[in-house]
Amino acid sequence: MNMHSLQMNIQKELWEYKRIFVWLPVILASLIVLIPVLNYLLGDGLPINWQQQLNRISQQQDNMLFSQIVFGFISALFAPFMIVAFIVQLYYFTACFFDERRDLSIVFWRSLPVPDSQTVGVKLLVGAIILPAIFMLAATMVLLLFVLVALIACTVLSVSQNIDIWGIWLSGEWISNFLITWSSLLPLSLWLLPVYAWLMLASIYAKKAPFLLAILPVTILVIVEAIIVEYFNLASPYFTVMLVNYFDFSNAITGQYTSISAMPINAIMSKVTVGTFVLGGSFIYATYWLRVNRGQ
């Protein structure tokens, strides 16, 4: 594979969707930073006695608890970025092929010496990995800013109030908890591979309203199956139960894990099976086939 061609293809995708790939994470990060600042300035200041709280934390020296608190803080900070990233992913995958045909830019891009397999692969890579990674990078910048402010505040308080809290800070396992959060990117992409591939198939096949085309067959199948189950008095619908179980983590998170930080990744990976790759691969191949044989 020509690495220069691959790089240019990725840059092309980032350039076409610059507003949602660059400016949206920046705007979201700015809001996350400004909201607590405005809340403090417009409110009554700090509502609790931080000296007493820091004294209590330093005296307890509960390293495991503080590590879990750090992981919870990092996860809560990354959560809004990942939610918005997923919404953007839904838009990108349903628009990536459809927009090219709508504005006729496909005529220009297909004139370049880029194989269709690379085009499909790059769009999948950009939407599944690079897009959420950009949002996670924005969340990382916000996290570093918050940690820097917290370190400065704790330094001032430890000097002025004579509170020793550096031991508990070092026990927070900040780096490992941060890396665990980032390591969830690949499991999430593998778990959602059939969804991404299905949306790409709808994008390349639809003549209009690709998102509607993506959800309509699933909705019709669920309704028809429910009618059949009710009419023939069957035990339970197969497709609906399978679909619900695939997105249900109530059973996956109840297992015994060595740490709370390992729970999300293990829960997600429990959903990734051979069927996940078979179904996702089938949709990707169908997308590639349509790209080659229909000239889209």
Rank of each mutant, 00 (worst) to 15 (best):
F73S: 11
V274S: 15
V278R: 02
W174Q: 07
M1N: 07
E100G: 11
I260D: 09
F21Q: 13
I129E: 05
M64I: 13
W198R: 04
F66H: 14
P36E: 00
Y288C: 05
L125K: 10
F249M: 07
F78Y: 02
S5M: 08
V218K: 14
S117T: 12
S184L: 15
P113V: 06
Q7A: 11
Y288S: 08
M64R: 12
I175K: 12
S171L: 01
G275P: 06
V229D: 00
L6H: 10
G45W: 00
I260A: 06
V195H: 03
S184R: 15
S236R: 15
L145H: 07
I152T: 02
I83C: 09
I48R: 12
M8I: 03
Y288P: 13
R19C: 13
V218L: 15
V229M: 04
R101Y: 11
G172I: 01
I83Y: 15
Q59S: 06
A150I: 06
F178K: 14
I152S: 00
M82Y: 14
G275I: 13
T276A: 10
G127T: 04
L193V: 04
V229C: 02
L125W: 05
L54K: 14
F78D: 02
L38C: 03
D99R: 09
W174E: 01
M1E: 13
L234G: 03
V26F: 11
V159G: 12
A95P: 03
F21V: 07
N49L: 12
V272I: 02
C96Q: 08
V229T: 02
W23G: 11
W50F: 15
L199P: 04
D44N: 14
T254I: 09
V241P: 07
E16S: 15
S30M: 08
P210Q: 01
F86C: 06
S282M: 13
I57L: 05
V156T: 07
Y92E: 00
Y246T: 01
F211M: 13
R294I: 06
S5N: 13
L28V: 06
T273E: 12
V33L: 07
L143G: 08
V107C: 08
I163V: 04
K18F: 00
Y288D: 03
I129G: 10
L201C: 05
P264M: 01
I106L: 05
M136A: 02
I220M: 05
F277G: 05
C96G: 09
R101S: 13
N49T: 01
L221G: 12
A76K: 08
F81Q: 08
S58P: 01
S160T: 15
M64P: 11
K18Y: 00
F66N: 11
Y246I: 04
S158K: 13
V37Q: 07
P264A: 14
W169K: 07
F21K: 10
R56H: 13
V156W: 09
S158R: 14
F135T: 03
V195W: 07
A197M: 02
M3Y: 06
I268S: 08
L190C: 10
F211D: 04
P36Q: 02
W182I: 12
